[in-house]
Design a protein around this nucleic acid. Structure first.
Ligand SMILES: [Mn+2]
Ligand SMILES: [Mn+2]
Ligand SMILES: [Zn+2]
Ligand SMILES: [Zn+2]
Lengths: 153, 153
DNA sequence: TACGATATTGATATTGATTATCAATAATAA
DNA sequence: TTATTATTGATAATCAATATCAATATCGTA
């Protein structure tokens, strides 16, 4: 089994566990959305609209609201992250692994997104939180500007 | 003149300069909103709704849309920052000085906001941007969690 | 001061993303 | 199989933010 397939299976298990724990149900629609999301959007930051349009091609009967609800479920179960890059639309990305926590640089001209991670920043943040006796649940860090292509004055 | 009064005057000058540069006009409404904002919301993070409700008490004829438009003007002219803390409402805070750049820790329970600044993080960010040839215009960093009061399990 | 060009205002309608509603249907447990 | 409970898809509702527009205010110039 490829590492990618293994990762997908792990997320699937986690999602199933969540479904069971909360007494929810497995459905064809959730399967379809799960597969589309984890097969084609790894490392991407997809909007609900985009994912819906994509899925509709193969499964025209799936409803818009269901995609909304399912992505929210993915987030709640810890297999997807919700992102907001200031354009008013929520974006979702599959979580690769707990270890691959990262942040984003967004080009305000072309929309290109560059991911980055930095241990020094992460430990600074923990320290700051500790100093203020804050019990951190999550944090976000975004850099906005022009990418190398768009930034040529 | 107190330091606070001096700061307010500086912002006023900057706003007037912007007004002139863009061939806009000085109006009573803008004066009223400016004064309310810089007299009573220094160090705060106020929503449009909140500021509107506050101003309406003294100046009942001021319209909701005008408060929206004026806060956006404050932002464009560089005398206010727009913040988004994940509750779907934009918040504005008066800019103290270029030197007082800072970030936020938000308690998801009681809404308390703690400000912090950290030079190490700032220089890390600049370095990361440089490495990726990104021309940074701004960045945001937020920590979400429970404050010391709310976090007592 | 009066005039003319231009910007602003306040009320209201509209937009756009997201959420709620609900009757029909599907999944699960007994 | 049946009873219970959750889900679905269509659509209405919500809510912050923005657009529209006629009336009014500002401001440079005469
Ligand atoms: Mn990412
Ligand atoms: Mn602040
Ligand atoms: Zn770009
Ligand atoms: Zn709190």
């Amino acid at each position: 089994m490829t590492p990618v397939a293994k990762r997908k299976m792990e997320k699937r298990k986690r999602f199933n566990d969540y479904i069971n724990k909360k007494h929810l149900k497995s459905t064809k629609q959730r399967d379809i959305i799960f597969n589309e999301f984890f097969n084609n959007y790894m490392g991407k930051h997809v909007t609900v609209e985009e994912l819906y349009e994509d899925i509709k091609k193969k499964s025209p009967s799936i409803g818009f609201a269901t995609v909304y609800r399912t992505l929210k479920l993915f987030k709640e179960s810890g297999i997807a992250s919700e992102r907001n890059f200031g354009d008013g639309k929520a974006r979702y990305e599959p979580i690769r692994s707990e270890a691959e926590h990262h942040h984003h640089m967004i080009c305000t001209e072309c929309g290109q997104i560059v991911e980055f991670a930095n241990m020094q920043i992460e430990s600074c943040l923990l320290q700051i939180a500790k100093l203020n006796e804050f019990n951190v649940s999550n944090h976000k860090l975004e850099i906005y500007g022009l990418c190398s292509s768009c930034g040529k004055d």
